[in-house]
């Protein structure tokens, strides 16, 4: 930009290149928004043509107004923060506990083999299936939701850390050890970078499962959170709240995935030059 203004001849619009960049960005935004606009138009047309009751379908405008109302009253912020807090705590605990376990197990082939089947089994029993039992244990509380989400998140993280640690060629470890590297050095220079791409894959999969488990658990525990928002609205037939909540859930998940998980993934791939597939 500064380059353009320096070389810009008098009379020529100085900011032209940056203007082009803005235009290109706008074009991209239009391209992303366009299919959504088409969908909203179809939705509007169906709603207008069908003359549905408010308990079946409402117009996009109604949903928009409801979302604005929820935001301005601070209700949405409360529901969102409840959900985000739980998924945040759950991810933190799952990484802090799951990654070391994964490494410990991955270091020994017997341990790895023994845990593989067990973890597969746990993954097969989705977290939500344990919900009735956990409700008996902890009642209808946030602890219950948190327990379910951690259970769902930690299994893929342990599993993928283990797989990642197992896949590191032994030569790397031997080479560093023969050069006199200590255990800590091995962890920071061999195990962690070697397994990181796999760990991130596990985190991403875990977030996919965990986010859904969170929403489902919130629907049944009914102690706040986005799942509670949309499921609670069902009982009173507030379709506008349900659809608005769904849009918020989708947008929020994309935000977490794109702004948090994907950059980490790109970073690990760029940093250690490991390509998936």
């Amino acid at each position: 930009m500064s380059l353009a203004s320096a070389s810009g001849a008098p009379g020529r619009p100085v900011g032209l290149p940056s203007g082009w960049a803005v235009a290109a960005r706008q074009l991209r935004a239009v391209k992303i928004l366009f299919p959504f606009l088409v969908l909203i138009a179809i939705w509007w047309a169906i709603d207008a043509a069908g003359n549905f009751s408010d308990r079946v379908l409402v117009s996009p405008k109604r949903v928009f107004d409801t979302v604005i109302m929820l935001i301005s009253h601070g209700v949405l912020a409360e529901y969102v923060s409840t959900s985000l807090k739980i998924i945040g705590i759950a991810s933190f605990i799952s990484i802090v506990v799951g990654v070391p376990i994964g490494f410990a197990v991955g270091a020994n082939r017997y341990a790895a083999r023994s845990l593989e089947g067990f973890l597969r089994f746990l993954q097969g029993v989705s977290g939500i299936a344990w919900l009735p039992l956990v409700i008996i244990w902890f009642g209808f509380t946030h602890t219950t939701t948190l327990a379910i989400v951690i259970y769902t998140l930690i299994v893929p993280i342990i599993f993928n850390t283990m797989v990642g640690a197992r896949a590191i060629p032994e030569q790397y470890e031997l080479a560093l050890r023969s050069l006199g590297a200590g255990r800590l050095r091995l962890i920071t220079d061999v195990y962690l970078p070697g397994a990181l791409p796999s760990i991130v894959v596990g985190l991403r999969l875990g977030m996919g499962y965990g986010w859904r488990a969170l929403i489902a658990a919130e629907m049944l525990v009914r102690q706040g959170g986005l799942g509670d928002l949309i499921f609670g609205a069902r009982t009173s037939g507030q379709i506008d709240r349900i659809i608005g909540g769904m849009i918020v859930i989708g947008a929020l998940y994309l935000l977490i995935d794109r702004l948090l998980v994907q950059p980490i993934e790109n970073l690990t791939i760029a940093r250690w030059g490991v390509l998936r597939k």
């Binding site: 859904r212 929403i215 629907m219 949309i230 499921f231 349900i242 769904m246 989708g250 998940y253 994309l254």
Partner: peptide, 11 residues
């Protein structure tokens, strides 16, 4: 894809 599955349940 971000809202696939259980999120549709109430609707």
């Amino acid at each position: 894809n971000a809202i696939s599955g259980i999120v549709w349940l109430p609707l």
